[in-house]
């Protein structure tokens, strides 16, 4: 049986030489966490099942910095690496794959041009394309939306793009389903309501998306403790849980988190 994965996420600011890992709160305030390849190396040693790098600056000039970060990382990190941020074409994806990435994540560019998912998956396989969705709860119920029951009342989920700065009007659950038919192999699902809040994952959101698609869903946003991971694994079919701050700022070590989960019956790799 496939293990549930624990994935640290490195939000990278590539505007400085070598890049640096930062963490925002509710997609806004920024805190400095470390050097990308060094943190990746530490998380690998601690037992990360995979590592996600997101270029939050996402401009073309900085792609070279990202490829050098991935090259350097892949010399000493032997778990899958996923890379995202500003990838708009197969050509840009190729640069990242050639640097040693196993998967790329797409968000804004795929919302603007869904065909990109098909173009990359045709060339590199479905498993290599992760669709990132930044979803926000909307309580104004409209026709044509997938309505989800939550303790706070029924809502639908709207996709955001440009790193949470703009909204699309697109229904997140419908978009997830469509992306699967276009060739996405995995969904990285971030709750914008929870990201940076330390309130735990958005369980109704994660559950609804995981039930809507037959590809792995990575739960993201709001994780502050192993209990939050336990909750998302017990209450949803999420294949993986992603977190950033709790690992970056030394609150929890990945090995300790995995032991905690295993002791409580979650199938994880320890």
């Amino acid at each position: 049986m496939l293990a549930r994965r624990i994935i640290p996420c490195l939000d990278c600011d590539l505007g400085v030489p070598g890049g640096r890992v930062v963490k925002g709160i509710e997609f806004k305030q920024i805190r400095y966490a470390g050097i990308p390849w060094e943190l990746a190396g530490k998380y690998y040693e601690d037992g990360a099942d995979e590592i996600v790098f997101l270029d939050i600056t996402a401009s073309h000039e900085r792609r070279e910095t990202m490829t050098s970060v991935i090259k350097k990382t892949s010399e000493s990190v032997f778990v899958p690496l996923a890379v995202g941020g500003g990838i708009k074409s197969v050509k840009e994806a190729r640069e990242v794959f050639n640097a040693g990435a196993d998967k790329i994540t797409v968000n804004t560019s795929a919302l603007k041009r869904p065909q990109l998912i098909t173009e990359i998956s045709d060339k590199y396989g479905n498993q290599a394309v992760v669709l990132a969705i930044d979803a926000k709860r909307r309580y104004n119920l409209e026709d044509g939306r997938v309505i989800v029951q939550t303790p706070e009342g029924p809502c639908w989920f709207e996709c955001s793009f440009y790193g949470g700065r703009e909204f699309t009007g697109v229904d997140a659950i419908s978009w997830a389903r469509k992306a699967v038919s276009l060739g996405a192999g995995e969904i990285l699902l971030t709750s914008m309501d929870r990201d940076g809040t330390y309130d735990g994952f958005d369980i109704p959101l994660t559950d609804a998306v995981a039930k809507s698609v037959r590809i792995p869903v990575i739960a993201s946003g709001g994780c502050a403790s192993p209990d939050h991971m336990l909750e998302v694994f017990q209450r949803t079919d999420a294949s993986a849980a992603l977190a950033a701050s709790i690992f970056h700022f030394g609150e929890w070590n990945i090995a300790d988190v995995k032991r905690y989960l295993k002791e409580r019956g979650v199938n994880v790799r320890v």
Binding site: M1, L2, A3, R5, D49, G125, N126, Q127, G185, E186, R214, I215, P216, S239, A240, R269
Partner: peptide, 10 residues
């Protein structure tokens, strides 16, 4: 089952 199988298995 999930196809492709993608992830860690024992």
């Amino acid at each position: 089952v999930m196809i492709p199988q993608m992830g860690w298995n024992s």
